Amino acid sequence: MDGAPGTRTTVSGGVTELVVLWGGFPLLGAGAGALLGASAEWVADLPWAPVQGLFEALSRLPQPELTIGAAALGVLAGGLLASAGTAERLVVRVDRERVGLRRDGRQRDVPRRDVRVVHVDGRDLVLLDEDGGELVRERSDLSPDRLRAAFGNHGWPWADEDPHRAAYRLWVPGLPGLPVGADALLRARQDALTHNRRDDARELRRELGRMGVVVRDEERRQYWRLTARAVLPDADHPTPAAPSDAFLGKRDDAEA
């Protein structure tokens, strides 16, 4: 049954995730710091120990002040990690008219009318438009079952797998069939993936999307497909057909 008008479903990691972040990381940090402080003198006597000069300096400090101070610093480091993890959490709020996605203090709303289908690709929540382009690709640890229920209860079209998955091709430098300039962007993006520059890779994905090229990653290898709005230099390469409504299980407009 569709969600009632005006109601909204929220999908997030919930209280459990916050407890793990704010309880686990500071606790682990305290334990690691205390162990470091307590074992400084012992490690300083090991000739093969790394950064031995640091441990020798620490071993000259009085106990138990060293252990207590190191534990406190561990708690602080754990708190910083917990804060970063909290900011990186994806929160999804769905109703019949739109979906809101919040991460790192930034909010993005996508109207229902712009979305053809919703699916999960590995750990990524993906929203596709009528041309097969990606409106949203957000990585998270949210439960696919909870996402499916949230979108389905409000009448959004859900697919259990990527309806375009068979259209992807492994990117090889210089491979024909891409819009002009796309190969250069894919080269730059491959370099960003190799060197773990996630922000650059994300921005290059958006640039490729504007050209009608959708990219998905598998073990730092890029796979690509074209959308219906891609413009190719050679008319002999037709654009792919949209997936059928039967496959998508698309609902009647009145339901949406």
Rank of each mutant, 00 (worst) to 15 (best):
G85F: 06
F151P: 00
W42M: 05
V19C: 05
E17D: 04
V172I: 15
L175D: 13
A159Y: 04
G23V: 15
E219Y: 02
H164Y: 14
V115C: 00
F25W: 11
D95Q: 02
V15S: 03
L142Y: 04
G29S: 04
S12Y: 04
G53I: 11
G53C: 06
E130Q: 09
R60F: 06
A241N: 04
D245K: 12
P50E: 07
M211C: 05
L175K: 11
P64V: 03
L66N: 05
G79W: 15
E97S: 07
P26V: 14
A254P: 00
D183H: 07
G133H: 08
D114F: 10
L135M: 05
D191G: 05
R202C: 00
E207H: 08
P47H: 13
A184S: 08
V213F: 00
H195S: 08
L101R: 02
A184F: 03
W156P: 00
R202E: 13
F151G: 00
P47R: 12
T10V: 15
R60Q: 13
D199K: 08
G23E: 14
G132T: 03
E17V: 15
D200R: 12
G24F: 03
F55Q: 02
L226Y: 01
P157R: 10
R112E: 05
Q222N: 08
V117N: 03
D183S: 09
G100K: 04
L170A: 08
F55L: 02
P157W: 10
V91N: 00
A159W: 09
R102G: 01
G177F: 08
D121Y: 05
E97W: 02
A150N: 06
L186T: 06
A159P: 01
R197Q: 14
I68F: 15
P233W: 09
P26L: 15
V110S: 00
D234Q: 14
D95W: 01
